[in-house]
Design a binder for these strands. Structure first.
Length: 262
DNA sequence: TTGATTGTTACCGG
DNA sequence: TCCGGTAACAATCA
């Protein structure tokens, strides 16, 4: 479900529902082993997205750390809470709203040391003001790994997922198999700027949109991306190639994105 | 019921 | 040390 835009959007939405309020933290189905009660009754002081990670900070200094993985999702509703839907690991309840966290990959309580460890292992997040692109560039220009893989490596650059990597590389006319070290600085700058723009648009609309102009009547999902899971390149009508990269599917147009010579 | 999936980590071997 | 490959895990939806 989530690429980085989903988590940043969730942070925006949930701030209004939970931040600055005393929360009741429960695990209605007993699926949270690390002691949600520890946080219950504390004020949630801040909600912060970091790449695909979401942090709920609490007044005594620890934080609830959530990573949704491939399948997890947030379900939000107005109070009073109703019966949990699906597998709810944690339920956060304020005076006005309920946030259920279903099926997250990670669901744990972090102290300050844990928070530091987390932020140190994540690369610059394209959606954060404090992101330093130089850190990403330093790793990319030194790596013989393909740019398609590097864009998915959250320790290199945070927030981009499988759909955005395909779409960004197509938009920038770069083949996914190009080695990181073969990119020039201009290409990297374009990738970074495009990632920022596309993910910001994703936050705004709460969905992935990578086409330049989208007719209102064509707002169905398949019409919002250029080549992801498509058959034909919208620019040159060539056949879209599909292949695997680190066990994830990638798409490219070998006309618009010239493959590297082997 | 089956299969696919917008993700990550651990571990192994070259 | 780097990097590719594999398995494991998660829950939902079409």
């Amino acid at each position: 479900m989530p690429e980085g835009h989903t988590i940043h959007r969730a942070a925006l939405d949930q701030r209004k529902m939970l931040a600055g309020k005393v929360l009741t933290v429960t695990s209605p189905q007993g699926r949270f082993s690390a002691g949600a009660e520890e946080l219950s009754g504390q004020t949630c002081t801040a909600i912060e997205a970091y790449g695909k990670h979401l942090l709920y900070h609490f007044q005594l200094g620890s934080a609830l750390h959530i990573h949704l993985g491939l399948y997890g999702q947030f379900r939000t509703a107005k109070a009073p809470p109703s019966e949990p839907r699906g597998a709810v690991r944690v339920r956060l309840l304020s005076d006005t709203h309920v946030v259920d966290i279903n099926g997250p990959n990670t669901c744990e309580i972090l102290d300050q040391a844990g928070l530091n460890a987390l932020t140190n292992r994540i690369g610059p997040d394209v959606l954060r003001e404090d992101a330093d692109p130089e850190k990403a560039w330093a790793k990319i220009k030194a790596s013989r790994v393909s740019i398609g893989q590097l864009l998915m490596d959250q320790s290199v650059i945070a927030g981009i997922g499988n759909i955005y990597r395909t779409e960004i590389l197509w938009r920038q006319k770069l083949h996914p198999k190009l080695p990181g070290k073969s990119l020039d600085r201009t290409s990297f700058n374009r990738i970074w700027a495009d990632a920022v723009a596309l993910l910001q648009l994703g936050v705004k609309h709460n969905s992935i949109i990578t086409v330049e102009k989208m007719a209102k009547s064509k707002s169905r999902y398949r019409e919002r991306v250029n080549i992801f899971a498509k058959e034909t390149c919208p620019a040159c009508r060539s056949e879209i190639r599909k292949f695997e990269m680190a066990a994830r599917r990638v798409f490219s147009c070998n006309t618009c994105q010239v493959p590297p010579e082997i």
